[in-house]
Each structure stands twice: as structure tokens, then as C-alpha cells.
């Protein structure tokens, strides 16, 4: 499937660091993945592993003192031309147009994602006017239409309300409407359901699926919830400490996980078969402090299959283990390829 189509977005060896007085936080440290048109890519990993910063890097809205220090982000334009996003100035016209019209963003917290002193409509109309070159009246009509599409009842009235007047679910729908108002080809949803209750969560996921069918857009769904991934994703990227440790189609990830971290993650979620009242296995150890990442494979201090002298010496590279699945782990790299692993990172920042 994937090989037939060119990816819509290719991220290659992306590194985004935060330079602070206390040290450098390597929030994203060599992430590589592709997003295909019309498909959902799930990005999963523990909190703090750099998922949000990856999304912000793609949109070029990383906060100070963060900076993309290396890597490529290639967006295939609708006209077939490639744009390398890391080469654009974040505040350039071209980058801003991409933000509005090619890539939309939905955040975890729908309440704080809206301005507290502007109406929902104000913020949608603003985006439409900026990118679609229409007048205020037309923009408003389009905004009402978009609000209707995301399932907001009485949109012509809701459009003049403030975010704090809406319920959590409606608020997130409104946020999706803002992101979709200019018909982006890629929607990045960063923990879109984490702040919502379970019922609302299911409704929002349904909505995303339905919108994807109608519009044929790609979705990059960021979550720490494997259940959401299982339900939504076509392909999965597993991140650990700013790096992609495993990626592949959702079935492969769930049924034949290869990386010890992926296996540990999967063991830690409850399933129908698991014995009641038996404590779920957790991943041993804790995530290293971001200033203090281990050299070699970032997971080795917590890894049950740690190979001394190898895993703590060199960084494994992402290698294909089957046609569609890749893993970054020395367990799957022959002795020969071991030497080709990336050099150990230069000390600890």
C-alpha cells in the first residue's frame, strides 16, 4: 500500500533542541517517519518523549529557546512540488500559508487553546479571511458551515460564543473546526482527547475518522494512549526520548512488536484476557532526566534485553525488519551492521 503512494510529509533525522542555561534538552533527537495522504499515523510514547515538540517543529512554531538543529521536513505540495520546511523562515509568508492551508493543528486542551477574550467565530473567521481571500461575510458563512460539519448544533449562534461557554466536547469540536477551516491536507492532532471524558473521547475520535473519510486528509495523531492508537491508526511510530524506536503498520506493532520498549508498552495496557486484580507490569526504571540522557541506545538502562558493551556504546539506527516494519535495536542488527550504528552522542549535554 504505502509503496504505491508517495508520502505527504517526510521527516528525516529531525533534531530539535532547547538551549537553556541549565543545559541542552534534546527534545527531539533524530526522528524519522512518513505520513501518507489519507492515512492516519499514530505517534505514541510516554509523556516527555518529544511528541509535541515534533509537531511544533513540523509547523515551525517551536517556542524559544528551542531550535531545529538538524534534519529535514519535506512537505509534498498539492502541485507535486516538494517544500523543505526547515529551510523556510518561521514567520515567512510561505510558511504561514502552509500553516493555515496545508497543515492544521489541534491541541490537547481545548479551553486554553482558544483566546479567553475572543469569540470562537472571531478566531475561525480570522483564519479563513487570511488564507482564502474572502470578505468578512463570506468568511462567516464558511465558518458556520465548518462548525456544522464538525457536529456543533446551532452553529450560527455558537459562532458568537466564547470558548468558556461551550462544553468540553463542543470546544474540542470547535478547535477541530478552526484547524480544518482552510481545508488542510494534514491534520496534526496532539492528544486531542486526553482532556475529555471517555464518552466524549469516543465521539471526537469518530468525528476525526468521519472527517478523514469526507476530506481524504492525512492525520498525524499524537497520543500516549495505545487504545486510541489501536482504534485510529493505520501506521504507528513509537517514540522514546526524542527518537523513533519502532515503526510499522498498526497490526504489526500490536501483534509482533520487535523493540523491547514497544513490548513493554503493550504489556502495560490492560486487556480483556488479563487476570483481574493482578498488577499490570510496568516498565522498570524511570525516564532519564532530559539533561542527562544515556549514551548509546537511550532505552538501555531500562531494557530487559540490554547487551552490555553494545547498547551502551553505540546508538542503533532504524533498520527494516520486514517490508513495512523498522526497529532501532541491536537485537535485530547483525554484527556487521553494528559498527555502522551512529556514534555515541557527544557526552551528556
Amino acid at each position: 500500500m504505502q509503496s504505491e503512494q508517495k508520502p505527504l510529509l517526510s521527516v528525516r533525522n529531525l533534531k530539535t533542541y532547547f538551549f537553556q542555561d541549565e543545559g541542552t534538552v534534546k527534545a527531539v533527537d533524530g526522528a524519522t517517519f512518513d505520513v501518507y495522504p489519507g492515512k492516519t499515523l499514530g505517534i505514541v510514547g510516554e509523556s516527555g518523549c518529544g511528541k509535541s515538540v515534533t509537531a511544533q517543529s513540523i509547523l515551525r512554531i517551536v517556542d524559544q529557546p528551542g531550535r531545529i538543529v538538524d534534519g529535514e521536513i519535506v512537505l509534498r505540495g498539492a502541485d507535486g512540488n516538494d517544500v523543505e520546511l526547515t529551510r523556510l523562515h518561521p514567520d515567512s509568508r510561505e510558511m504561514r500559508d502552509i500553516r493555515g492551508t496545508e497543515i492544521g493543528l489541534v491541541f490537547q486542551e481545548p479551553m486554553t487553546s482558544f483566546s479567553p477574550v475572543h469569540t470562537v467565530g472571531n478566531q475561525i473567521v480570522e483564519a479563513i479571511r487570511l488564507h482564502c481571500g474572502v470578505n468578512e461575510r463570506e468568511a462567516r458563512i464558511k465558518a458556520v458551515e465548518t462548525l456544522r460539519q464538525v457536529g456543533i448544533p446551532k452553529p450560527e449562534r455558537r459562532i458568537d460564543e466564547y470558548a468558556f461557554e461551550l462544553s468540553g466536547g463542543l470546544r474540542q469540536r470547535a478547535m477541530i473546526a478552526v484547524a480544518l477551516s482552510c481545508n488542510p491536507r494534514l491534520l496534526i492532532a496532539d492528544e486531542p482527547t486526553t482532556a475529555l471524558d471517555v464518552t466524549t473521547q469516543a465521539q471526537i475520535l469518530d468525528l476525526l475518522r468521519q472527517l478523514q473519510e469526507q476530506r481524504g486528509m492525512a492525520i498525524m495523531l499524537i497520543t500516549h494512549n495505545l487504545g486510541v492508537i489501536a482504534e485510529m491508526a493505520d501506521d504507528v511510530v513509537v517514540m522514546y526520548l526524542g527518537r523513533v524506536v519502532e515503526q510499522g503498520p498498526v497490526d504489526a506493532i500490536f501483534h509482533s512488536p520487535q523493540h523491547p520498549y514497544t513490548r513493554a508498552l503493550l504489556r502495560s495496557i490492560p486487556s480483556i484476557e488479563s487476570t483481574p486484580r493482578v498488577e499490570l507490569p510496568t516498565i522498570s526504571g524511570s525516564i532519564p532526566h532530559p539533561y542527562n540522557r544515556p549514551s548509546g541506545c537511550p532505552f538501555y538502562p531500562r531494557c530487559p534485553e540490554f547487551i552490555p558493551g553494545t547498547c551502551d556504546q553505540a546508538e542503533p539506527a532504524l533498520r527494516a525488519v520486514s517490508e513495512q516494519q523498522s526497529v532501532s535495536c541491536f537485537l535485530y542488527q547483525s554484527q556487521v551492521s553494528q559498527g555502522q550504528g551512529t556514534k555515541p552522542s557527544e557526552g551528556m549535554a
Binding site: L59, E109, T112, F114, P116, L130, V178
Partner: peptide, 12 residues
């Protein structure tokens, strides 16, 4: 976050 979402809408 509302500042970041405003940026994500492509405003200058």
C-alpha cells in the same frame, strides 16, 4: 496554548 494555536493558524 492559545498563542501557539494562533501561530498554527498562520497569522504573522
Amino acid at each position: 496554548p492559545y498563542v501557539m494555536t494562533a501561530r498554527a493558524r498562520g497569522l504573522s
